[in-house]
């Protein structure tokens, strides 16, 4: 398995396990060319930094309406209780879980790794200049865009 395959399969496994456990939904990995509408003015994102052994970021982008669904499904909030904070918090928790599982699958079992604290924001994630791997997903009737960003990951791919 080359480095790109390893990164892609680690990411797919991390997203699949996380979403199936937290939302009971199966994911479908789409082709980059598939026209799935995710990034628009109503997009929200969560970014989780990787600190060790590779530095970079995991970025998740979804629509705000899917964020509301996730807050309801993940936390069990009812409609009126779903605040902006609750949506961001639920997405950050999902990013944190996916990032941990991704690095757990990527690095050897005997090697420790460190993650930073998640950030969330509105609109499309600004810095997508160093995307090492990108994965558009369909989850039920919703879309999600997950990417691994950072020079360390690009270097990994180039060394392969």
């Amino acid at each position: 398995m080359n480095e790109l395959d390893k990164i892609q399969s680690s990411l797919a496994s991390a997203v699949s396990t996380t979403m199936e456990n937290m939302t009971f939904e199966e994911i479908e990995i789409m082709d980059e060319a598939d026209d799935i509408q995710i990034v628009d003015s109503d997009t929200i994102w969560s970014m989780l930094p990787f600190q060790k052994p590779h530095s970079g970021e995991l970025v998740i982008q979804i629509s705000r309406s899917y964020g509301k669904v996730l807050a309801e499904e993940v936390v069990g909030l009812v409609d009126d209780d779903v605040s902006e904070n609750a949506i961001n918090d639920a997405l950050a928790e999902i990013a944190n879980t996916i990032a941990g599982r991704f690095m757990g699958a990527l690095v050897p079992e005997n090697q420790e790794f460190e993650l930073g604290l998640p950030e969330t924001g509105n609109g499309s994630f600004a810095d997508q200049s160093e995307v090492a791997a990108a994965m558009p997903l369909r989850i039920g009737c919703h879309a999600m865009y997950v990417s691994i960003v950072g020079k360390d990951f690009i270097d990994l791919l180039e060394k392969a």
Binding site: T97, G100, R101, G104, Q111, E112, F113
Partner: peptide, 21 residues
Amino acid sequence: SVGNEASREDLIEQGAFAVIG
């Protein structure tokens, strides 16, 4: 979310009773 074997062992050594991923 940092749930690989090396991290688990280190946390148990530091005094955690258990680590749940």
